[in-house]
Amino acid sequence: MNLVELSKEISYALRHTPWEYELELDEQGFVPIAQLLHALNESGAYEREITQADLEQIIATSEKKRHEIVGDKIRTLYGHTIPQIIKKEPGIPPAVLYHGTTHKALPQILLDGLKPMQRQYVHLSVDVETATRVGKRRDPEPIILKINTVAAQKVGILFFVGNDKVWLCKEMPKDCLSIFTPKTLPCNTAV
């Protein structure tokens, strides 16, 4: 396994785009190690399962101290470009949010709605582009779900502020979901 490449991916995830990995950073920038390992391993990008020992080896052999493990959590120490650390403060989301998922997961989602799975929260994106990037981590042609947040709030779903691209919730009922289909313009319509 190429630990340098793995280190770069971890830094990218923790410093710049935790929402693409559906990671939930706390106020100090830490994320549970189990959550990071799950995100890295679910992509199938590595020839074997990544372990905590791999993370510890990256930290021990790095020329620059980029990452830190404390207890069961890990963080990057500097270089963050995220606009803010993910907060779990209640808020009122936009009327529509999006979620990228796999073809494999879709039948279960349509039966049970969205569940947080290995995470504390369901991650919802503010735009189709972000949802697509998130979904592509697990499926090259992800399904994009459209979330009706107004209907969700009416049935008691609470939303929490993630960052400028992500909203969080504990679950999302199936009745508040639909499959997003991009609108296409007729050939004679000027753009």
Rank of each mutant, 00 (worst) to 15 (best):
R137M: 15
A34T: 11
H103A: 07
Q118W: 12
Y46W: 12
A131E: 04
L55H: 08
W19E: 15
I69P: 04
P116W: 01
N163D: 15
T189A: 13
P140S: 13
K87I: 02
P107G: 13
Y21R: 07
L55W: 09
T76F: 09
P32S: 04
L168R: 03
V4A: 08
L14F: 07
Y46F: 12
N2W: 05
W167Y: 08
V155N: 06
A131I: 10
Y12S: 03
M1P: 06
V161W: 08
A105L: 05
L110E: 13
L114I: 00
P140T: 09
F159I: 00
A131H: 03
L55I: 14
I85R: 15
N41V: 03
L168T: 05
T130F: 10
Q108H: 13
T184S: 08
K104I: 05
T81Y: 07
T149S: 11
M172Q: 01
I85F: 14
Q52C: 15
Q84V: 15
I69K: 11
M1G: 10
G44V: 04
F159M: 00
Y98C: 03
G91S: 12
L23Q: 09
A39Q: 06
S11N: 01
W19G: 11
V166T: 15
P18M: 03
T149V: 11
I85C: 09
P32G: 02
Y78F: 15
H80D: 08
V70N: 12
L177A: 01
H103Y: 07
G44P: 01
Q118F: 08
P93W: 02
I50M: 01
R119N: 14
